[in-house]
Amino acid sequence: MNLQFLVSGLGLGSVYALSGVSLVVLYRASGTLNFAIGALGALGAHCAWTLLSLKYPAFLAIVASVVVAAAGSFLYGRFVAPALSHRDRSVRAVSTLGFALVLLGVMGLVWGETIPRRLTLPTDAAYVELLSVRVTYTRIVALGLALATVGAIALLLFGTRIGLAMRSLASDRELGGILGINTTRVDSIAWLISGAIAGASGLLLGDLVRLQPSFLTFLVIPAVAAALLGGLTSLGGTIVGGLVIGVVEGMLTSFPELASYRSAAPFLIALLFVAVAGRSHSLRTSQ
């Protein structure tokens, strides 16, 4: 078995994990599964590319990516999501899919879908060699950022009042509202944080994968799979889930019979997990 692909898959898995964390943060607080995080990340990455191509400093481009995605997410969360707050979770999730398609259309108009572009970050220039694979600093940053984000989110949830409010709403939204938690404010902050993480993920994916609106938009799929492996609530589980998906997808490259179906790996892993977890849950319930 070629361990090169393990190393290669870890880098991408880190970003899947980061994207998954973005989903989980919002889902825990507001109960909304945001299918637009891929598009928000793509929007941020394209803004960063524009600034870089205009010779602005990389730092500014990175900040812009995060700010634009966070702002887009906040605006949706503040002005659209409340109108749907009384609707079923599936309706709220599908509405974010509509938001993703709107963003995709906007990106198509502004940047075009088929123009080949390259997003280069300063961290691409340096690398360490591991198992004959060059691991660029961008990949190392991706892994570090995923872990640091989980730490920061855990600190927010368990060490701040807003975190307490988020946990209360996640536990019982109606009761939290009756107890005086400003649900709109808490939700808006969750949308803002989720969007910022999506912006960072989009920037990394734009660098590691390719800078193409549709491609980045639909990378929400492995992120959802990673979040599912974390049960849509566990940040640690989501990190592990993202890494597993990235590594499995990478390792499948060394099996020629399966290599052509690698993009199905996130679905299959998530499906398998849901089936096994659902079965053990029903067993526990029956006992």
Binding site: Q4, F5, S8, V209, P222, G250, T253, S263
Partner: peptide, 20 residues
């Protein structure tokens, strides 16, 4: 010949396989 999944985002693994 090396074939790959066009929907796969992990081009690094694909290119490593081609150059293996």
């Amino acid at each position: 010949t090396v074939t790959f999944d066009p929907a796969s985002p992990d081009m690094t693994s694909i290119i490593l396989q081609a150059a293996a």
